[in-house]
Deep mutational scan, measured.
Amino acid sequence: MQRVNMIMAESPGLITICLLGYLLSAECTVFLDHENANKILNRPKRYNSGKLEEFVQGNLERECMEEKCSFEEAREVFENTERTTEFWKQYVDGDQCESNPCLNGGSCKDDINSYECWCPFGFEGKNCELDVTCNIKNGRCEQFCKNSADNKVVCSCTEGYRLAENQKSCEPAVPFPCGRVSVSQTSKLTRAETVFPDVDYVNSTEAETILDNITQSTQSFNDFTRVVGGEDAKPGQFPWQVVLNGKVDAFCGGSIVNEKWIVTAAHCVETGVKITVVAGEHNIEETEHTEQKRNVIRIIPHHNYNAAINKYNHDIALLELDEPLVLNSYVTPICIADKEYTNIFLKFGSGYVSGWGRVFHKGRSALVLQYLRVPLVDRATCLRSTKFTIYNNMFCAGFHEGGRDSCQGDSGGPHVTEVEGTSFLTGIISWGEECAMKGKYGIYTKVSRYVNWIKEKTKLT
Results as ranks from 00 to 15, higher is better:
Ile336Val: 13
Ala164Tyr: 03
Cys178Gln: 01
Phe176Ile: 06
Trp88Gln: 15
Phe31Asn: 15
Asp110Gly: 15
Lys68Cys: 15
Asp93Cys: 08
Phe345His: 02
Leu163Tyr: 00
Lys45Val: 09
Glu61Pro: 15
Asp212Gln: 13
His415Thr: 01
Gly403Cys: 13
Arg294Leu: 00
Val248Phe: 04
His314Val: 03
Gln143Asn: 01
His361Gln: 04
Val377Trp: 03
Gln216Tyr: 06
Gly409Lys: 14
Phe424Lys: 00
Val195Cys: 15
Glu323Thr: 12
Leu23Met: 08
Gly254Met: 01
Cys18Ser: 04
Ile275Lys: 01
Phe78Val: 14
Ile7Tyr: 05
Glu66Lys: 09
Lys446Glu: 15
Ala397Glu: 02
Thr332Cys: 06
Ser49Arg: 08
Ala9Arg: 14
Pro177Cys: 02
Thr386Gly: 14
Ala207Asn: 11
Gly160Ser: 04
Gln237Cys: 04
Thr426Ile: 01
Gly442Val: 15
Ser406Asp: 11
Val4Ile: 07
Lys446Leu: 04
Gly253Arg: 11
Phe176Tyr: 10
Thr426Trp: 00
Asn213Leu: 08
Leu52Pro: 15
Val243Met: 04
Phe176Glu: 02
Val77Leu: 10
Asn5Asp: 04
Gly398Ala: 09
Cys396Thr: 02
Glu27Asn: 03
Arg162Ser: 10
Thr271Phe: 05
Glu231Asp: 09
Lys146Asn: 08
Glu286Gly: 10
Gly160Ala: 02
Trp356His: 13
Phe176Ala: 04
Leu52Ala: 11
Pro177Ala: 09
Gly125His: 04
Lys362Arg: 10
Asn127His: 15
Ile309Leu: 11
Ser107Glu: 08
Ile299Gly: 04
Gln185Glu: 10
Ile284Thr: 09
Gly355Asp: 03
Gly409Val: 03
Asn452Glu: 12
Ile443Trp: 14
Leu321Ser: 01
Gln408Tyr: 10
Val77Asp: 15
Gly94Thr: 15
Lys234Leu: 04
Gly351Asp: 01
Ser365Met: 08
Pro172Lys: 06
Asn245Gln: 11
Arg226Cys: 14
Asp378Pro: 10
Asn135Tyr: 04
Gly363Thr: 13
Lys247Gly: 12
Arg162Asn: 13
Ile262Ser: 00
Tyr341Pro: 06
Asp212Ser: 05
Leu318Ala: 02
Gly160Thr: 08
Phe348Lys: 03
Asp150Arg: 06
Ser169Phe: 07
Leu325Tyr: 02
Pro301His: 06
Asp249Trp: 03
Arg62Met: 11
Thr194Lys: 11
Cys155Pro: 00
Leu130Lys: 07
Leu60Tyr: 14
Trp240Tyr: 02
Gly403Gln: 07
Leu383Asp: 14
Ser406Met: 13
Thr381Lys: 06
Lys260His: 05
Leu327Gly: 01
Tyr444Gln: 01
Leu41Ala: 15
Gly229Asp: 10
Ser187Pro: 11
Lys51Ala: 14
Lys45Phe: 03
Arg75Ser: 03
Cys145Asp: 01
Tyr450Thr: 01
Ala173Thr: 08
Leu41Val: 15
Thr218Val: 08
Asp338Trp: 03
His282Gln: 11
Ile7Pro: 12
Val181Met: 11
Val377Ala: 13
Lys247Pro: 11
His415Arg: 01
Ile210Met: 04
Glu124Arg: 04
Gln408Thr: 14
Gly254Val: 00
Arg226Pro: 07
Gln57Val: 10
Val277Thr: 02
Glu433Gln: 14
Asn328Ser: 14
Val278Gly: 03
Val326Ala: 11
Arg358Gly: 14
Val419Ser: 05
Tyr391Asn: 10
Glu340Cys: 03
Leu20Thr: 01
Glu231Phe: 03
Phe123Met: 13
Ser182Val: 10
Lys126Gln: 07
Pro239Trp: 01
Glu54Gln: 11
Gly412Phe: 14
Cys396Gln: 02
Thr84Gln: 13
Ser255Glu: 02
Glu165Met: 10
Glu288Cys: 06
Leu211Met: 09
Val273Gly: 07
Ser204Phe: 11
Tyr201Asp: 08
Asn36Lys: 13
Glu27Met: 03
Gly349Tyr: 03
Asn100Glu: 06
Asn5Cys: 12
Pro324Gln: 04
Asn138Leu: 11
Thr85Arg: 05
Val77Cys: 15
Cys97Phe: 02
Ala149Gly: 06
Gln370Gly: 12
Ser448Val: 03
Phe399Met: 08
Asn393Glu: 12
Gly412His: 08
Tyr22Cys: 09
Glu418Gln: 15
Glu73Ala: 13
Gly402Val: 07
Ile15Val: 05
Gly432Phe: 05
Trp261Tyr: 06
Ile428Arg: 01
Gly398Glu: 13
Thr276Cys: 04
Thr16Met: 12
Ser169Pro: 00
Leu32His: 15
Gln2Gly: 10
Thr342Gln: 03
Leu321Glu: 00
Lys109Thr: 13
Ser107Asn: 09
Thr225Asp: 05
Ile316His: 00
Arg191Gly: 13
Asn310Cys: 07
Ser204Asn: 08
Asn100His: 14
Tyr47Gln: 06
Arg404Ser: 14
Phe238His: 04
Lys247Leu: 07
Leu20Met: 06
Asp338Tyr: 03
Gly58Asn: 12
Thr287Ser: 12
Asp150Ile: 08
Cys396Leu: 02
Ala149Phe: 10
Ser169Ala: 11
Thr342Gly: 07
Val353Ile: 14
Asn328Val: 00
Glu165Phe: 08
Gln237Tyr: 12
Val227His: 05
Phe144Arg: 00
Arg46Asp: 07
Asn127Trp: 09
Val183Pro: 12
Cys435Lys: 04
Arg43Lys: 13
Ile210Pro: 05
Gly254Ser: 01
Lys455Gln: 12
Thr218Asp: 09
Phe196Ser: 10
Ile429Glu: 11
Leu23Ile: 12
Cys117Leu: 01
Val77Phe: 07
Gln216Pro: 10
Val181Tyr: 06
Gly357Pro: 14
Val277Glu: 01
Ser184Pro: 08
Trp453Pro: 00
Cys170Pro: 01
Leu32Tyr: 14
Asn5Trp: 08
Gly125Asn: 05
Gly254Phe: 01
His361Cys: 08
Ile297Met: 07
Val377Lys: 09
Gln57Glu: 05
Ser204Met: 13
Lys457Phe: 07
Ile454His: 01
Gly280Trp: 01
Val154Gly: 04
Val4Gly: 11
Gly442Ile: 14
Phe121Asn: 07
Glu420Ala: 04
Thr271Tyr: 05
Val326Gly: 07
Val374Lys: 03
Cys396Gly: 02
Ile299Glu: 06
Glu285Leu: 10
Ser99Ala: 12
Glu286Pro: 10
Val183Arg: 10
Arg404Asp: 14
Phe348Glu: 14
Cys396Lys: 02
Ser406Arg: 14
Tyr444Glu: 01
Ile316Lys: 01
Tyr441Glu: 01
Val195His: 10
Glu129Ser: 15
Ile210Ala: 10
Phe395Thr: 02
Phe395Asp: 00
Ser148Asp: 08
Asn166Asp: 07
Asp110Leu: 15
Thr194Leu: 04
Glu116Asp: 10
Asp378Gly: 10
His289Phe: 12
Glu61Asp: 09
Glu401Val: 03
Glu320Gly: 02
Lys137His: 07
Glu72Gln: 13
Glu401Gln: 13
Val368Asp: 09
Lys109Tyr: 04
Ile284Val: 10
Glu86Ser: 15
His282Glu: 03
Phe424Glu: 00
Gly442Leu: 14
Asp249Asn: 05
Met437Ser: 05
Thr271Glu: 12
Tyr371Asp: 04
Arg140Ala: 14
Asp33Cys: 04
Pro333Val: 00
Phe399Leu: 11
Asn135Ala: 14
Asn80Phe: 02
Thr287Phe: 06
Asp131Tyr: 12
Arg43Tyr: 02
Ala250His: 08
Gly254Asn: 00
Tyr305Arg: 10
Ala279Pro: 00
Thr81Gly: 08
Ile7Met: 09
Ile256Trp: 00
Thr264Glu: 00
Arg180Met: 04
Thr29Phe: 06
Ser204Gly: 05
Arg373Val: 06
Glu27Gly: 13
Ile256Met: 02
Arg449Trp: 15
Thr225Gly: 07
Gly413Asp: 07
Cys102Asp: 01
Gly427Lys: 00
Asn283His: 10
Lys362Ser: 11
Leu346Gln: 05
Lys247Cys: 05
Ala164Cys: 03
Pro375Ala: 15
Pro120Asn: 15
Asp232His: 04
Asn38Ile: 07
Gln185Pro: 13
Tyr312Met: 10
Ser204Glu: 07
Ser411Glu: 13
Leu14Tyr: 04
Cys268Lys: 01
Gln143Leu: 00
Lys234Cys: 04
Lys311Leu: 12
Thr264Lys: 00
Thr342His: 04
Asp198Gln: 08
Val326Arg: 08
Asp198Thr: 11
Cys97Thr: 03
Met65Gln: 10
Ser217Trp: 10
Ile316Leu: 08
Cys335Trp: 00
